[in-house]
């Protein structure tokens, strides 16, 4: 038996909207630790890892570890029927082939339940090793989204370079070249407006902008995005989910063969 109740139901909606463009079908894993997911995009270039810790739920019951295969666009269709202020409960029986989503309005005067068929998904679980990153950039998530969107009108790839100068985003296209440099800026009124750059070693990596733009669909989850870079490692683009966990996107770089 699985029963998860989240008063701030809009979080589920935001999580789904953040990952559904990248991944079609995924196994949601439920254990005493929390509700999690790991999935790759269809071309196996990017990976998404979600964790919603059990402590973040108002009610969390998971009698035994359970993995539920779901189609994310079907799930998103059902979650679209939930109001932004609704309380969302996810229920499933052990060994069952359906999952139930229950939406309660804050005043309890409207209660809906949606039953969705589960699917069997043969997905590969990858071990993500702990790594020391050469550079970690924290910046406003809206600023990062703006940069990715702007650069993708000019080129297909972005070179992200971190040096003493700051973090530089470069693209090239048929019409020309674009460079955007963000310098460390901690003297702002609000911490969520700061750009903070930790650099152990200079780093420069090339990525497909198409994926970066897809990651920025998770922007409503957090005011801040953390970009961790190491030469010859996938970049990690992380959106923290307040008091609950995170959505992390890993993207393999473009490399010289």
């Amino acid at each position: 038996m699985l029963e998860l109740r989240l008063v701030q139901g809009s979080l589920f909606k935001k999580v789904l909207d953040g990952i559904k463009d990248l991944v079609n079908d995924a196994n949601f894993d439920c254990s005493s630790t929390g509700f999690s997911l790991q999935a790759m995009d269809s071309s196996h270039v990017a990976l998404v890892a979600l964790l919603l810790r059990s402590e973040g739920f108002e009610h969390y019951r998971c009698d035994r570890n359970i993995s539920m295969g779901m189609n994310l666009s079907n799930m998103a269709k059902m979650f679209k029927c939930a109001g932004n202020d609704d309380i969302i409960t996810i229920k499933a029986d052990d060994g069952g082939d359906t999952v139930t989503f229950m939406f309660e309005s804050p005043t309890q005067d409207k209660i809906s339940d949606f039953e969705m068929k589960l699917m069997s998904i043969d997905s590969e679980h990858l071990g993500i090793p702990e790594a020391e990153y050469h550079a970690i950039v924290k910046m406003p998530s809206s600023e990062f989204a703006r940069i990715c969107r702007d650069l993708s009108t000019i080129g297909d790839t972005v070179v992200i370079s971190v040096s003493k100068e700051g973090v530089k985003f470069t693209t090239k296209g048929d019409i020309g070249i674009a460079n955007i440099v963000c310098r460390q800026n901690t003297s702002v009124d609000k911490p969520e407006e700061a750009t903070v750059i930790e650099m152990n070693e200079p780093v420069s990596l090339t990525f497909a902008l198409r994926y970066m733009n897809s990651f920025t669909k998770a922007t409503p989850l957090s005011n801040i995005v953390t970009i961790s870079l190491s030469n010859e490692l996938p970049v990690v683009v992380e959106y923290k989910i307040a008091e609950m966990g995170y959505v992390r996107f890993y993207l393999a770089p473009k490399i010289e063969e």
Binding site: H44, V45, L47, I255, E257
Partner: peptide
């Protein structure tokens, strides 16, 4: 010219 690496190059099946 650069080619797109895949995730499996870095992360192994667990």
């Amino acid at each position: 010219l650069k080619s797109q690496a895949r995730i499996a190059r870095y992360f192994r099946s667990s």
